[in-house]
């Protein structure tokens, strides 16, 4: 890529408002997964992000993720942030191969902002969700080699005035979830917990508590999910998206909430 000259395209080759297409035309080597070739399974342990959840409440969406990344039986990172803002009104949380996932989110963030700057207006929430689906589908060759990425996408739909949650499969298939979804190795446990506690009229505070508790439940049952770490003071990453936009809860806020909840039923009583 020549990064000193203006990228100009002849008619018929113009990439339009898509940054991914600009990269495809000018610097294909910079696309995620470029140059990937090799055996079907990598000869090393791939770093994986584990459990993330998205819960819709009355007026928005809560997204949360544990902080652990694993590579085989080792802990690769204790403080990974898996919930990331996509733009002012949406967020992505990542489960799966950590390297390609982080790269995918970075490209997705640029893609949304690029569209907004070129076109002069933001994509609709559905449009953003479809764009992420295309990136996931683009990762399919890498997924076949063991680098699968399956994000959750959630945001506040400014046209419909409600929070919405989308999940994906490795082929880029996009599924809108009515109320909540969980992903990653501890996702099943987290989802069951949420299912037991979710109601149509759940408030923002109750949804945050439910997210924290569901991640505790996942960490309880799944070795790859990080539980609350009281020694190092590590707690889940939590973001709220409502009509005011993306708001990340501070570590102190989450810690305070988590400590109150830890005194609750997770202790399990004497029987366990």
């Amino acid at each position: 890529m020549d990064d000193t000259a203006l990228p100009l395209f002849g008619s018929g080759f113009d990439p339009g408002p898509s940054f991914v297409d600009v990269l495809r035309r000018t610097a294909p080597h910079a696309l995620p997964g470029a140059g990937l070739s090799g055996p079907a399974t990598p000869p090393f342990d791939v770093t994986h992000g584990t459990t993330v959840v998205a819960i819709r409440f009355d007026g928005g969406v809560v997204m949360a993720g544990d902080r652990r990344a694993t590579a085989g039986y080792t802990i690769a990172n204790r403080r990974m942030d898996k919930v990331l803002p996509a733009d002012d009104y949406s967020a992505v949380s990542i489960a799966g191969a950590a390297g390609p996932a982080v790269e995918m989110v970075k490209l997705f963030q640029v893609q949304l902002e690029h569209y907004e700057k070129v076109e002069g207006e933001q994509l609709s929430l559905e449009g953003k969700a479809n764009q992420l689906g295309m990136l996931v589908r683009g990762n399919l060759p890498a997924a076949m080699q063991g680098f699968a990425v399956v994000p959750l996408f959630a945001g506040f739909d400014l046209r419909r005035h409600r929070g919405r949650v989308f999940s994906y499969d490795v082929t880029g298939g996009k599924y809108e979830e009515l109320d909540y979804q969980a992903n990653g190795s501890g996702g099943v446990h987290a989802r069951n917990w949420i299912k037991a506690g979710w109601t149509e009229t759940i408030t923002r505070e109750a949804a945050v508590d439910l997210a924290i508790r569901s991640l505790f439940a996942a960490a309880d049952e799944d070795v790859a999910t990080g539980g609350p770490d009281l020694v190092r003071r590590i707690f889940p990453t939590i973001a709220i998206i409502n009509e005011d936009g993306y708001i990340a809860l501070t570590e102190d806020e989450v810690a305070r909430r988590a400590e109150i909840l830890l005194d609750g039923r997770e202790r399990g009583g004497d029987a366990s």
């Binding site: 890529m1 990064d3 990269l23 000018t26 610097a27 910079a30 640029v110 070129v118």
Partner: peptide, 17 residues
């Protein structure tokens, strides 16, 4: 307008890489 879009592309490419 064409120059503006080319500038957005150059800036985003630089920031991305």
């Amino acid at each position: 307008q064409m120059l503006k879009i080319a500038g957005v592309r150059l800036a985003d490419m630089k920031g991305y890489s």
